[in-house]
């Protein structure tokens, strides 16, 4: 099964070409031009990774990252920026970003990070399920 990714950037031209390239690599990609819309799209939590631009109107990538991680701690977020700074990178990692990439992006690096994101998400989901089962086992008397 392919990785399910949401790509968020306010530049339509960037979304078009990136999604075409990602699809040709077997990634199941959806796009959004705003962080607010991205939060709605991720409500069911079924994305493996969200690739998020740092600078966007209304709600920037850092705010969106915090909101995403609060609702879906297992979702892996990769931040993109046109002018990455060490400070922003540290802030993003502290908030739980999986990684931080500077534009222009190297597609092979991004693809590799998306593969890793899916593995990481599956690990977190399986841990969560294991914990749930353990809890049920200890709470119920059979």
């Amino acid at each position: 099964m392919s990785e399910k990714v949401l790509l968020v950037d306010d530049e339509n031209d960037f979304l078009d070409v990136m999604s075409e390239r990602m699809k040709s690599r077997g990634i199941d990609v959806s796009t959004s031009t705003s962080a607010k819309e991205a939060l709605k799209l991720t409500q069911d939590g079924n994305y493996d990774a969200v690739v998020l631009d740092l600078m966007m109107p209304e709600m920037d990538g850092i705010e969106a990252l915090a909101a995403l991680k609060e609702k879906h701690p297992e979702i892996q977020v990769i931040l993109l920026t046109g002018h990455g700074t060490v400070e922003k990178g540290i802030e993003a990692m502290k908030l739980g970003a999986m990684d931080f990439l500077e534009k222009p992006i190297d597609m092979n690096t991004l693809t590799e990070k998306i593969h890793n994101a899916r593995a990481q998400k599956m690990l977190l989901v399986s841990k969560k399920t294991e914990e749930k089962i353990k809890k049920i086992m200890t709470e119920k008397s059979w």
Binding site: F14, V17, M18, G82, P104, M107
Partner: peptide, 18 residues
């Protein structure tokens, strides 16, 4: 301005990649 130029370069980069 550097951010805006970088955004244009990022799209050029992806088109070259395509």
């Amino acid at each position: 301005i550097s951010h805006e130029i970088n955004n244009a370069l990022a799209i050029l980069n992806e088109n070259a990649g395509l």
